[in-house]
Design a protein around this nucleic acid. Structure first.
Lengths: 150, 150
DNA sequence: AGGAAAGTGGGTAAAAGTGGGAAAATGAAT
DNA sequence: ATTCATTTTCCCACTTTTACCCACTTTCCT
């Protein structure tokens, strides 16, 4: 099970390539070390899953009822935006243009490791996201810590 | 389960390295003796967790639902600031620059062992923190100890 | 006092991060 | 079917950062 953590800023070059932070690369538990599925995230960002974590995810989507209208919509939308990509010899992701556009990423990418996946944000958008939240960091810690006690 | 205690002042060198107090080092119960997760603390300081203690914490973040908007925010906020670091052959931590900046640590670090984690403060900031508390140590003891009785 | 461990500093080889060009593949137009 | 233009893939090269090693001084302990 992966355990991505930390954050970093990297540049996307003119070909749409970005190195993934080495500390996150080292955290990949998958046998297929260099394959990711990159997809549309929740909020205006992208999620990158190593293949094994992605499969876990896919299973839970598979188990959704295809009868339910909402579930169908969710499954279609998610899969529509999902692309499998391989890291190149320099450990870079080639991010599809459509996804870059969705996340409004042009020159720089802000990476955050969030346990089972890596998030890619346009730096300004992440800042906006944080600023728009009312809860402080301290509240967040409190929330998690109190959950831990019980 | 670790049980850090005591305090000490150490210097950060030009590369961002600090020795961790040997008395605290000896207190690490983890099998992976030399791996820590260092993260943003509450108040303007850093927390260093030995890996096994950290995992405890991580479990509770993992159990947060990624579907719930608030939980997503918590997970991102916490993980953004968390970095895994290994002690080098001289038992030094290499503290990421972003975290040093957050805690305003430049030349010196004040270490405090607080049971399951070690805190790192800029000495001046710790002094300010203590001075800013109106409650005396005696009052605090009274408060905590009486709660314990019930 | 003497040896060992702790604390600090610095040099260097390796890895990480970035950029770009040439070969291979794709695909549309003649 | 062949040509030409565009995109994609693969490789090479350069710069910066990091990891690893060695060394010196101070403190601790018997």
């Amino acid at each position: 099970m992966s355990s991505f953590k930390g954050s970093d800023i990297y540049v996307v070059d003119s070909k749409g390539r970005v190195s993934i932070p080495s500390k996150m690369r080292k955290n990949i538990q998958s046998e297929s070390r260099y394959a990711f599925v990159i997809t549309r995230g929740i909020e205006k960002c992208l999620y990158a899953y190593p293949l094994d974590e992605w499969r876990r995810m896919e299973e839970s989507i598979r188990s959704l009822s295809q009868v339910n209208e909402k579930d169908r919509y969710f499954a279609r939308t998610l899969m529509q935006w999902s692309e499998e990509v391989q890291l190149d010899a320099q450990f870079r992701l080639l991010i599809p243009k459509s996804l870059l556009d969705f996340a409004e990423i042009s020159k720089e990418v802000f990476f955050i490791g969030v346990l089972d996946h890596i998030e890619l944000w346009k730096p300004e958008n992440f800042k906006k996201y944080i600023d728009s939240r009312k809860e402080s960091y301290e509240k967040a810690v409190e929330h998690v810590m109190s959950a831990r006690k019980s």
